[in-house]
Amino acid sequence: MSIQEIEKEIIEEFELFGDDWEGKYEHIIDLGKSLPKIKEEYKTDDRIIKGCQSKVWLHSELRKGKIVFTADSDAIITKGMVALMIRVLSNQKPEDVVNANLEFIVKIGLKEHLSPTRANGLVSMIKQMKLDALAFLNS
């Protein structure tokens, strides 16, 4: 599936919750719990994407022309957001990752997580995912 198709799928999935924010967050927490963990060897301090409060570790590699992301976080809500990002951007062509505008975050009502005061590392993670994709594109 393309990035846009996956985004559409996620938007539809979240529409089911309507105004039920508790349901929405329970879903995010479940997504966080189901996130396949990053290999311990990649969970080093120099790989931490700095948010002020929660940490995110990210690893990327190129397999058959597609970029594969694995990640982890020490906060479960952040981890749920990370899981969503991986679902959308992993197994995609590097150029598509670079060009993705990721409107789904706003559309599913989670734009507060993009605020700089949230300091949850999500914004930095998206930036790092794109930088990694750009590096693969140029290599």
């Binding site: 924010w21 409060q53 929660s54």
Partner: peptide, 19 residues
């Protein structure tokens, strides 16, 4: 994680500090 607790409390209208 304190971040998770603070995020959910905020949804309930409660302002606490985390970090």
């Amino acid at each position: 994680h304190p971040f998770d607790v603070g995020t959910l409390l905020d949804k309930y209208g409660i302002a606490v500090r985390t970090g």
